[in-house]
């Protein structure tokens, strides 16, 4: 399990973004350079035909394992899954100390 102790720092955020891009690359079978091109507005669920509910479920489960978070039913909404930026914002919020 990877941990991101310093999300406040720019380095911590960059590490999280890299981890999420790697995860999406693993799910979609992309090369590292293709995943690197993902930006905040890049579309995910509902935009990529191969990213169906089963694939999204796998992605969220892998996110839980790699980031050490628990994703509840209520956490999952259209906004969070629609774009790479949405997913990144969700992961950041989950990792922030409360």
């Amino acid at each position: 399990m990877t941990t991101f102790p310093n999300l406040d720092s720019a380095a911590g955020e960059a590490a999280l973004e890299r981890e999420l891009k790697g995860l999406i690359a693993d799910v979609l079978g992309l090369g590292a350079d293709q995943a690197e091109a993902f930006g905040p507005e890049s579309g995910l669920f509902g935009h990529l035909p191969e990213l169906d509910s089963m694939a999204v479920a796998g992605l969220l489960t892998e996110m839980e394992d790699r980031l050490g978070i628990v994703i509840e039913d209520d956490d999952v909404d259209g906004e969070m899954l629609e774009t790479f930026g949405g997913l990144l914002a969700f992961a950041k919020a989950k990792l922030e100390p409360r």
Partner: peptide, 13 residues
């Protein structure tokens, strides 16, 4: 867990 999650996501959609 994975299969239930796939089902709830599809239902929500």
């Amino acid at each position: 867990r994975g299969m239930i999650r796939a089902r709830t996501i599809a239902a929500r959609e």
